[in-house]
Amino acid sequence: MGIYLAKRIGLAVLVALFVSILAFGLLRLQGNAATALAGEGASPQDIAIIVETYGLDRPLVVQYATWLGNALTGDFGTSYFFKRPVAELIVSKVGNTVTLAVLSLGIALALSIPLGVLAAVYSGSWIDRVCSLISLMGQALPSFFLALCLVMVFAIQLRMFPASGTGSWQHFVLPAVTLGYYITPPFMRLVRAGMIDALSNDYVRTARAKGLPAHRVVLKHALRNALVPVVGLVTVQLGLLIGGSVVIESIFALDGLGYLAYQSISYRDFPVLQAVVLLLSLVYVVLTLLSDIVNAWLDPRLRVS
């Protein structure tokens, strides 16, 4: 287990370094960084000032090292648009996005695991079809449409939850339900397929031969094995949720990272964009590492390789 962990962590650090190079290169890739930063219609003097301020005339390696050094100490520069340090800006938004992502994921798992297990145990019957239909609707309905429906019913008609804003926990309910239901289908399909596979295995027959009650056979022996691939999907989806809740965050005016990323692109706010890209990539790297560790715990065979 120790060697396995060391290998995984080493790999994660390498990937993180590579990602930082990409994030750094982002600005340079589109040609002259100084003109890009200065924006349209900038005078040569303005560009010269920018070149000097940001040290753009130095060798790329030196620039990268300086940028990475600063980034490691938490200094991502200052936002052009918000006129605040980027780090401070991100810290103020990241909590909302993470809360939303974790809540949505919780809702998705709470929906998909029972639905998937039921569908697998009764595969081919009407129960299977009903479960699959419930989950498929999540995929078929555009998330903004579901969001509007939820707002109409629960915010406007029933007045149970606020329609928009970030103030309290109630603000997170509707966006989390929308996002959670939206990502339910892949989880449900994976749980169903994994359970059907697990239930046909010899070790399930062994468990039944022990005279154990059906729920113990299904929920202990089969589900444990069916959940291994789900862990991988959790990390991928969590990464997507943190990086990709732009639409939902804007509909519900939820002040999170996705909304910030969207804004930084429209305002050509490069320091913010670089930081967000780097951060989101690191989220992926860390989540992949975590999923490897959790998988090794779920499936002991992985620990040796």
Binding site: R205, A207, L298
Partner: peptide, 8 residues
């Protein structure tokens, strides 16, 4: 295959 791979 008769033993469950996930449990000791």
């Amino acid at each position: 295959t008769a033993l469950n791979p996930a449990f000791p």
